[in-house]
Design a protein around this nucleic acid. Structure first.
Lengths: 210, 210
DNA sequence: CGGCCGCCCTGACAAATGTCACGGTCGGGG
DNA sequence: CCCCGACCGTGACATTTGTCAGGGCGGCCG
């Protein structure tokens, strides 16, 4: 491993400064990689990428301002030549799907051995796709969200923890309608509670969209 | 900054292999620090520490097997000369309190700049205490858990998401009693739902103990 | 066109959840 | 000693939640 002439230029985005710095240290050990920018918010990714022109961007999913999926789409639109490698804490099945749809070239969970990260970066830079095989299988198994649009919206609003009446007011619906959508969501997720349904839907990444 | 003769020996515990490896890379850049062991589970901390005899242990709070707080207590009991620096993702107010009570010498959130980590390690090794001042203030504000022992236990069991009847069976209580404890917990946490109460209690670290 | 299917909306009903008032036990002061 | 407060346990009651059957649209295919 190593060494052509010009090293691969990297942008790091992670909201945890310590992790960000540590990843920078890890990747800087490789002599064919160089970290040219670091940001801590999703909405800083595109501006910073415009300045530093990286070859590959490592984006966390959980970030303030703009989540990693949305940041991926924005970056792909602004700088089509820059590849994106999404690095996330949770192996939520739906995250992978959303990331790929948004134009990411790779998807790595933070459980993977540290040594493999540099290789993943190189593969992505070479135009290959990098995907955790286990996670890919889970994604296929979980499938696309079975929730209808309204159900998703109601469930998303219900995360705040209000009563059915509150949700009805917020969404301009009858209280019974809200309960009905929730009931449908509970059935489809296989949950027993409203709270359970929210957990399941979140775990599968079915609540991401705007 | 550097160097006496023998470097400080470090043990790293974090369930995310990538973060663990990155931290190792970051700390290895300092010539007065050396990483002698890495583990990914809380219950591996003490056995590994026995083998490698570190001077300082960096422990994450969120870990499988045994959480970082419990691991701190176990490590302090087994190897009293080894200092503990807790490094965690979430600045939950109660975590800090619990960590200190368990015998930790320092508490750092992953939001802190990467450069400060090595200094924190050195201070802890020197016998000083390292605490994020902002977090310390929050801890005092949040205070100790207002929940009674039974209430905590019921709330903890309720995390699984079962009905009141299920909880009653699991805890050998009447269904009404369970509901009453939950109601008290809801009142004390200022929540409106059972689910809300669980969230609040978890956020403040009131549900940690065994 | 007519039937069919999926989605959205709604009200009525049963089951769960949350609240309340009450009794019992234990330990610390006055 | 007796009172008081804190905690635990329990059942009755109102409120909330989840389920069901059903009606109104709009698109798709025979």
């Amino acid at each position: 491993m190593s060494g052509g002439s010009t090293p691969i230029r990297l942008l790091l985005a992670d909201d945890q400064a310590l992790v960000r710095g540590a990843l920078a240290a890890l990747l800087s050990l490789e002599d064919d990689l160089t970290v040219v920018a670091e940001v801590g918010r999703g909405d800083e990714v595109v501006p910073e990428a415009r300045r530093s022109a990286p070859d590959v961007a490592l984006l966390d999913v959980e970030m303030p301002g703009l989540d990693g999926i949305a940041a991926t789409a924005a970056l792909r639109a602004a700088l089509p030549t820059c590849r994106v490698l999404v690095v996330t804490t949770f192996g939520r099945p739906g995250y992978l799907r959303r990331a790929m749809e948004a134009g990411a070239s790779g998807f790595v969970v933070k459980d993977t051995p540290a040594r493999q990260l540099a290789d993943a970066v190189r593969r992505v830079h070479a135009g290959l796709r990098v995907v955790d095989p286990t996670l890919a299988a889970e994604t296929l198994a979980a499938g696309v969200s079975p929730l209808t649009e309204r159900e998703t919206e109601v469930l998303r609003t219900a995360r705040g923890g209000g009563s059915a009446a509150d949700l009805a007011r917020a969404l301009h619906l009858s209280e019974g309608t809200v309960r009905n959508h929730l009931s449908a969501a509970i059935g489809k997720t296989g949950a027993r509670n409203r709270a359970d349904a929210i957990r399941v839907a979140e775990q599968n990444g079915w609540l991401l969209g705007e």
